[in-house]
Write a protein that binds this DNA or RNA. Structure first.
Lengths: 339, 339
DNA sequence: TATGAACACGAAACCGTTTTCGTAAGGTTT
DNA sequence: AAACCTTACGAAAACGGTTTCGTGTTCATA
């Protein structure tokens, strides 16, 4: 890389002090018009750009927000990033993105790297493995050093920090209720293992909707997908019951369910209704298109970053952690057209 | 945020100089065993972490790679990011991700921000609007300042830098040839306007395959999608011709084509074969599943970042820009099952 | 003519770390 | 006893910028 021009070189070349150059470039009233013009012309000509590192060191802030995600090739998370970037940008921040790849070890490492001062604050969603281990010690340092920190979507109560979540219980309830209103009686739930808390919450909503209608919870209709194994056979199993509705907690599960239904010669939505979660492209473009719960990832990202920047910029803010709950909407499509 | 402990505070507390502390923490032989132990114990106890900004300023490197993408809620680009992050991480780098949102203006701004020294090098893919304007002046600064810079996928010859691309012509050829081998004669091409160079290249491959079979290029079968308008009607128009094959340059177009075919009562793949580009989730989960050209985005990201880090770390590297061409594969699925 | 602004600029400290170059104290050779 | 070598540490400069606090002119006012 070429040697960059600095304030010092400008000062030397023009025979003034670096303070003068600094002030001139900021158009300070302390500097005479002629000197300012000379310096600014020189800086322009040699394309002077202030060195960000020096500024960061002096100001003790980086204007960078760290983001740690379980994965990126994933519609919901990429939507959230998009929202974070949008919100950050509006306030003059950039984002540094890292991935835990759902691994506990990588999450710990990444968190350590980001908390060494390269970012002003961190937004993250917890890795699946970490949720499974229930090992949250690596967050203690973050909290005790009072690094601005916001968790979203996959959060846990044990960590005292700001949080942004969707109303998972309410969403699960809405989805299930919609199926019930469609006249469905035997509704399967395809969910994650219970340690993934969003899965557990959506399940609560599912159960609440059933109980309200005096329908017993049949655990035979509930599949907790083990992602280390092939997904499809696990879902196929629940189809052995004579189900007429499926509520899947993400769109991959929903798409798999639909495929299986078709293979079994069942018509969607005539014989069976299917509803997914996360409004991604699969749901939109499959045929029939799939009714889903729209999670508003973009909004979630924006809210998370707004919360974080408040913490960063207002030291005097209320100490108590805030929790923002984003409501989710039912997006009606073909897979649950009422008969 | 809590005040962090620095070398200076340690020095003051222990009544030694900061040079001694710095050396002691690095286990230098210059420092006596007792002093080292005292200092290290103190540092451990107060959880001392070196300030990254100070190190970056001193070393004149950030160990951060800037990435500028047109968008992120997009299967291919998110896959590439994933590859970049993976490759960067292995070499001890982090990535700072920005988006141009396909906008020329935002691209210019972002490029300016990233080239002020906050990153050691930049990887990017050009925004649609920029390609349309053909205005590449903002890259001149990057090139003349010799900032390590790699373009991928959406690249242009005018910019002298390292590049990583897929063999778009070859891929278009492969796709079209596959349709021809399936016995298709009237093959529609659904592509981007010509200024998006990858679209243009894939079209070349399409035309080459047809010409080889002595089939005239019928421009009536070629649709250049205007993304500012609704996509579906534009594709519907080409179905007015009695086509029996579709080659779409991305999976959204392919999915749209399939939906239209179904609505017209045509069976895929019996009456019409469809092939897409970018092996994303839509292709995999639609029914019938869609044959696509797999672009190997992950590999592409890795190669791009490897190239970049070579530039960053080897000043003495060959000056001439390198170009890596990644071969793409046909991923056979149901939408082109031979009859 | 003395007083005091107003103006235009420079010196120096500071952010946190590393690294080069002293140097004082003590020990070992001749 | 002179010459030299270790050992163990500190002072200072450097990275690039900002900011506070002088300070020497010049010019207007009392």
């Amino acid at each position: 890389m070429k040697q960059k021009i600095t304030i010092k070189t400008i000062a030397k070349e023009l025979g003034v002090s670096s303070s003068t150059v600094s002030k001139a470039l900021k158009d300070s009233h302390e500097i005479s018009k002629e000197t300012k013009e000379r310096i600014q012309a020189y800086a322009d000509h040699y394309n002077y750009k202030p060195n960000h590192l020096a500024l960061q060191l002096r100001n003790q802030k980086t204007k960078v927000i760290g983001v740690i995600l379980p994965k990126i090739v994933h519609h919901f998370f990429s939507t959230v990033i998009s929202g974070i970037e949008d919100g950050a940008n509006k306030k003059g921040y950039n984002i540094m993105v890292c991935f835990s790849n759902e691994s506990y070890k990588k999450e710990v490492e990444t968190l350590k790297v980001l908390s060494n001062g390269s970012v002003d604050g961190i937004i993250m969603s917890i890795a699946r493995e970490t949720l499974h281990n229930k090992d949250y010690d690596h967050f203690k340092g973050i909290v005790s050093e009072e690094i601005p920190f916001v968790l979203f979507d996959r959060v846990v109560d044990e960590i005292l920090c700001d949080k942004v979540v969707v109303d998972d219980v309410g969403a699960g309830y809405k989805a299930t209720k919609h199926l019930l209103e469609n006249g469905r009686k035997k509704i399967a739930l395809i969910t994650t293992p219970n340690h993934v808390n969003v899965g557990a919450l959506r399940r609560q909503g599912y159960e609440k909707a059933l109980i309200e209608q005096y329908i017993n919870i049949n655990t035979g209709l509930i599949v907790e997908i083990d992602e280390t194994k092939s997904i499809k056979p696990q879902i196929e199993k629940v189809f052995e019951n004579d189900i007429d509705g499926v509520f899947a907690v993400n769109e991959i599960y929903a798409a798999n369910a639909m495929r299986i239904a078709k293979e079994l010669g069942k018509s969607v939505p005539n014989d069976i209704s299917i509803i997914g979660f996360t409004d991604g492209l699969i749901s939109e473009y499959s045929s029939p298109s799939i009714t889903t719960i729209a999670q508003h990832g973009f909004t979630m990202g924006q809210q998370a970053v707004d919360l974080l920047i408040q913490r960063i910029e207002n030291d005097a803010i209320d100490f108590r952690p805030k929790k923002i709950v984003i409501s989710s909407d039912l997006k009606l499509r073909e897979s649950t057209k009422s008969m």
